[in-house]
Design a protein around this nucleic acid. Sequence first.
DNA 1: CTGTTAGCGCCTTCAA
DNA 2: TTGAAGGCGCTAACAG
Lengths: 364, 364
Amino acid sequence: MAVTLADVAAHAQVSSATVSRVLSGNYPVSEATRARVLRAVGELDYVVNGPASALAAATSDLVGILVNDIADPFFGIMAGAVQSEIAELHGTGAKLAVVCNTGGSPERELTYLTLLQRQRAAAVVVTGGAAEGADHAAAVAAKLGRLTDAGTRVVLCGRPPLPPRGDGEPAVTTLAFDNRGGARRLTEHLLTLGHRRIGYVTGPPDRTTTRHRLEGHRAALAAAGVPGAGAPAAAGTSAAERLTVHGRFDRASGYDATLELLRREPELTAVVAANDTIALGACAALRDQGLRIPADVSVAGFDDLPFSADAVPALTTVRLPLHEAGARAGRLATNREPAPPGGVATIRAELMVRASTAPPRDRG
Amino acid sequence: MAVTLADVAAHAQVSSATVSRVLSGNYPVSEATRARVLRAVGELDYVVNGPASALAAATSDLVGILVNDIADPFFGIMAGAVQSEIAELHGTGAKLAVVCNTGGSPERELTYLTLLQRQRAAAVVVTGGAAEGADHAAAVAAKLGRLTDAGTRVVLCGRPPLPPRGDGEPAVTTLAFDNRGGARRLTEHLLTLGHRRIGYVTGPPDRTTTRHRLEGHRAALAAAGVPGAGAPAAAGTSAAERLTVHGRFDRASGYDATLELLRREPELTAVVAANDTIALGACAALRDQGLRIPADVSVAGFDDLPFSADAVPALTTVRLPLHEAGARAGRLATNREPAPPGGVATIRAELMVRASTAPPRDRG
DNA sequence: CTGTTAGCGCCTTCAA
DNA sequence: TTGAAGGCGCTAACAG
């Protein structure tokens, strides 16, 4: 069928071992034979059989990148950075960096992890927040543990660290985002401007990203003594709970949730969204209700995606260095950068104050 | 090291052949042994060795999806659709659909294709326009031909068909976008509104998408007898050429190009962008120049990405059914849908008239 | 520096 | 219905 190593060897009149050596370039070969082999490779248009080589060498050049939503630039930016960092490895170490779209589904995440394990992937980079169900979290942690045991490098990027395993060793390298801190500073900014009736529009409740950002938001509220802003866990309908609406991490959801928020609290002076995409939906909803931003209602997002600076008005948000984080994850995954102490590094989130936030119209 | 088929076989007290048969499910096995094997698999936490199985079976379950820019929703939407369509295949046919980011670089495109060929990928879906250099086009066509020869299914999605090969058989299945037709209808819309001084902001000159959309635009201009709107190939600086600015397919480029356009022709009444992202940049530039949309200048885009309907004002654009096209490509790649007659289907582009276009203020 | 020789783990005839 | 055995194409000792 296809051209094999043996064909090349015959054509170049050397042994297949020699061909293998010039191709992998990890062993001395005389310049003359080397040239002869390369010419044979060219003439026969030979392409290595990846599976065979992976089997024999017990390693593969596949690197998997898991994302929750490939159509979302938040993930696209990170994945692109990981991939280009890995593609940098020219020549011998050519890796196939490959992104897998889980759609945010825990099952598919596990499925992809298994598929990658089956391929004996060299590394796996898991991006974005995790689903929180105890069972699923445990299943993922177990799967990642098995991957590392099998020699696959695992890097978490934008996801909280795994619980430590029994055997001391940090299970996987983690680049965690400071979602709590960023969210807290953002809400503090609004508080400082004088806002007190602040709505919060966020994604699915059972995601780490949702929870951490919400915790930061409420921590700021509580610290400022905003009435009723109790602990999230408190039962009943505290003011904070009444002003929090969950949905999906997309624009449509942000739109609807903002309308709901307005229904619950017409006197709202600010809306904090759990990400920029939701914030855009919130802006659209407010505008459709005849409210001006920020004159009537301030709006803030999170992530600082490229479009946020271009929105009208430009969106106040929290900047996450997605590209840098992805690139670093890529280097970590390919062993070109030492793991941070303890295996975990926290990526700082930076407040970006722009035009969509201003002091409230009426002091409450 | 890892658990192997043989381990499972020993544990279940059957031959490894039997285990293999149970796992691939393509051969009769008694219910009793089947259960025993499955239990052993579970107890040992066995995961198939992909490379070994690919080597022995001479097929792999990898499906590659090539995109030009993973951070661009245009590609994200298509890739996501392809991937979810392929992930549908549960159970035995579990495929690993995987996206590769070429960054629009011809070299990286070729590199990824080779990497996928090396993995003996089951299928490859190539999305988006192609780079046009004759040498590169030939290299890609040759590579795709070799892939199909090796049994890899190749589907082009949103890319013009390959030139027919000598041997009759349509080389690869193609889902082409009607970029020319869509662009033409869009410009006709502007013409109908009364615009005559229409600027065009587009991407890199050496891309099929750029060229086809530009051709459609100019065809409309020429048909309407707009002065100077000659053939694109015409030498010198026709009016059409003077009002066309090339850049990248991103917002920043759209911003800069629009400023340049305004410099060249302050009396502009409309800006047509080669895609929605560029259009957003154009809007920002116009706004920054104190021009209102559409009162002073109309703006139109292409693709109808999700954000376009939300822009202020909502963007007039040309809708491409990206999700549907991606899903269909996924089905084609997995042989779950017959190829269109002749191997090529053209995907219709639909004009979406929204708020960003209106009659020009002064009749020219 | 180069050739020889075992496997890597699985699939797949061929027998039983 | 099940087992035995050869080989897929390549790599990695081990000799020479």
